[in-house]
Amino acid sequence: MASEQENFLEKDPEFLQLRTLWLKMAIGFSIFTLAIFVAFIIGIISFADIVAARLSDGGVLTVAIALAFLVILLPVFIAAVFMRRMDRTIEPMRARLAKRRRP
């Protein structure tokens, strides 16, 4: 499966740097995003009674709806940051390595 060129790249310092950096970004962003997701799911269930009681008082509704709105948009913001970092850090490295791989 591996060509000699790819065997060479496997040990290339820039390739190893790319692999590490990408892995850190992918796992870091995923854990951060999933943590927010899990927190909100737990929040929906665990605090149902508290939220319901406060909503029945009135006045909290707008805040609750606004929070829910923001939670939906959070992944968009996080993904936008990730996309920008990928374009600025990963893509140039990848382009250089690809050129050396297929000169």
Partner: peptide, 20 residues
């Protein structure tokens, strides 16, 4: 409101698709 779980999931899922 619990239908919000169904609404909430896809944006997060697409984000994970992008990352991983």
């Amino acid at each position: 409101f619990d239908a919000f779980i169904y609404i909430l999931v896809p944006p997060f899922a697409f984000a994970i698709l992008i990352f991983l």
